[in-house]
Design a binder for these strands. Structure first.
Lengths: 341, 341
DNA sequence: TCCGTTGTTTGAATCGTTTCATTGTTACGA
DNA sequence: TCGTAACAATGAAACGATTCAAACAACGGA
């Protein structure tokens, strides 16, 4: 019982031709009831399982889609992956997941692997500048959709989120709840996402003549980085009344350092808003307001765009940009009357 | 340029036989320098990429391993996955990842898919009682290793972590730092992991005649559940001096509610220890002591056990049980002298 | 009885690799 | 010059499923 049963074995066991077995599997209507039953019984008795390699070889293409993300541990991508898997399942395709871990060579390995597997197409959240690799793929006829990155529409389709709009939303919300002396806490603005969010925030602040926005650089995008920014603020004294952090982890860190003083209150003295709406946001000491990215829509749309590219011959690419959503929680509740008034 | 180049195209283009091209790819030493160069140039010019389906078909087996986890969003599994991928890469295999999401039918779908793909073997963290499915796989010759579940050694290999030992470690640490009135906070003890951790804790407490252990049930395993347990404790007053939570999220919730009172201090008044050592543990308001599970070792060993099963004919299964590790941070620092003495 | 139609079943050809027995080539010693 | 290694290159067969033209069967109408 070493080699598993093939369609030929089934055919012999049921005393029919191999073509008939294939028809039972793929076009049951073409086969008479009697033989169908016989074949199905044989399949059952032999424990036959289709050999996907043989199917693919014949078909010339697999029923899988490659998806390469920057970090499976990141809830943002986890959510995108799940949505993509569900959407692909509806089309009868499975998703092969690769985690590049921000590493260009791992990314390259996965591209090779997926190409050898003859995936229908590729969804990728690229590490760096892989345009050369991707151009090659395009020549070879492997449709590609960029995820979480805006692409040159003449070359690729893409799905991304409007970070400028997200930044605007966050700052506008702080302004709308009466704050005027705002601060932006973000990692290095060399990160595109951070720069865009800041730009959006600045746009909102310009709308209010009496509002200001101070930019505070953080050393990374972690809770600890946020905490040291918060500590710095507490020590120096001159505090903003609204803080927008480029990511929830930073915001949680800032929250920790501010509340640890036991004299500052959130949101009465300082309002705080983050970005990403991670699971922890809701269970922070003070539930954190945040900007939620439509991850499900991203994943689903990426698959849909890919399906379009697979089907049509003439490649009309589309760059779909989603708008993030404001999630209001306690950390940006109304300011203290005495202070605000 | 629709169909991609095959080995035959390469052979024609380089004016050699197909077998020679194959040798260039698989046994470069068998081919003379001259022809090798010619073939490689042809490969490059045509943009030839091996067709994995054809390779597999010929080989009868794929170079992939199926891995089905309960939840890719869970850091525990994320880490196991990463370790498994790295270990598999060393053996020249790739890992196909499936996320069952605690859903038996998704799990079943993945088992089907992987079987069709003729994976070398399967690593699975089963949803429920899938022994029937797995027995079938075993009959079909698909080696299987259970992950994070102790298996009947006569049937399967498995890798798991000794939760009883983990519970003992945690409680023993609280006792060693002078605490005597302990509490265990855990989800329903119907979860095996929770029950085992509790049992280990009880074992440790029995070693100290003057120590007690109170069991507090929580409504789930989340930060919010932990917070309500904490609130309950604060309200009722009669407080333990050491708390062991069955998971870090619970512990963080308890920590929030205790510190919010602004009268209780961690660790001086109450020591707190969690389980899992998630990333957030280190960046909690008071860095959280925890029990770390050797996730990397789990993933790596699972692959190694699978490799053993793949290679040897006679299936001698092994159940490898790892011992978790105590990670001491500030939340279980020394108790207040006045209180402890 | 024969023909045409409809519905089933057949089996060879095909997909792209790898394998391996065979053939071809070269060089060297006898 | 011949024989024989040693080395290179060849190309048919095999893997297992799908496809499709062709063969076959059954039946009703002429």
């Amino acid at each position: 019982m070493n080699r598993s049963a093939s369609i030929k074995d089934v055919a012999n066991h049921a005393s029919v031709a191999v073509g008939t077995v294939s028809n039972v599997l793929n076009y049951p209507d073409r086969v008479s009831q009697r033989t169908k039953e016989r074949v199905l019984r044989a399949i059952d008795e032999l424990g036959f399982v289709r050999n996907d390699a043989a199917r693919q070889l014949r078909a010339g293409q697999s029923r899988t889609i490659g998806l390469i993300v920057l970090d499976v541990g990141n809830p943002f991508f986890t959510s995108v992956v799940r949505a993509a898997e569900d959407a692909a399942a509806l089309l009868g395709s499975a998703v092969l997941l690769g985690d590049s871990g921000h590493n260009a060579s791992r990314e390259s390995n996965y591209i090779d692997l997926f190409q050898e597997q003859r995936v229908q197409g590729l969804l990728i959240s690229p590490v760096g500048d892989v345009t050369d690799r991707l151009d090659l793929l395009r020549e070879r006829g492997v449709p590609t959709v960029l995820v979480d990155r805006l692409a040159d529409e003449s070359k690729y389709s893409s799905v991304s989120v409007d970070d400028d709009a997200g930044g605007y939303l966050a700052a506008r919300h702080l302004l709308d709840t009466g704050r005027r002396r705002l601060a932006f806490v973000g990692g290095p603005t060399s990160i595109r996402q951070v720069a865009d969010r800041l730009q959006g925030a600045q746009r909102a602040v310009k709308e209010e003549p009496d509002a200001t926005l101070e930019v505070l650089d953080s050393d990374g995008q972690t809770v600890l980085a946020g905490r040291s920014v918060g500590n710095m603020l507490v020590e120096r004294g001159d505090l903003p009344d609204g803080i927008f952090c480029a990511n929830d982890l930073l915001a949680l860190g800032v929250m920790q350092s501010l509340t640890m003083t036991h004299t500052l209150r959130i949101p009465e003295d300082i309002a705080l808003i983050g970005y990403d709406d991670i699971d922890f946001a809701v269970s922070a000491v003070v539930p954190l307001s945040s900007i939620r990215q439509p991850t499900e829509a991203l994943g689903r749309t990426a698959i849909e765009l890919l399906a379009e590219e697979v089907e049509s011959e003439n490649p009309r690419h589309r760059a779909v940009v989603f708008t993030p959503e404001l999630v209001v929680r306690q950390s940006t509740g109304p300011a203290e009357r005495s202070t605000a008034g």
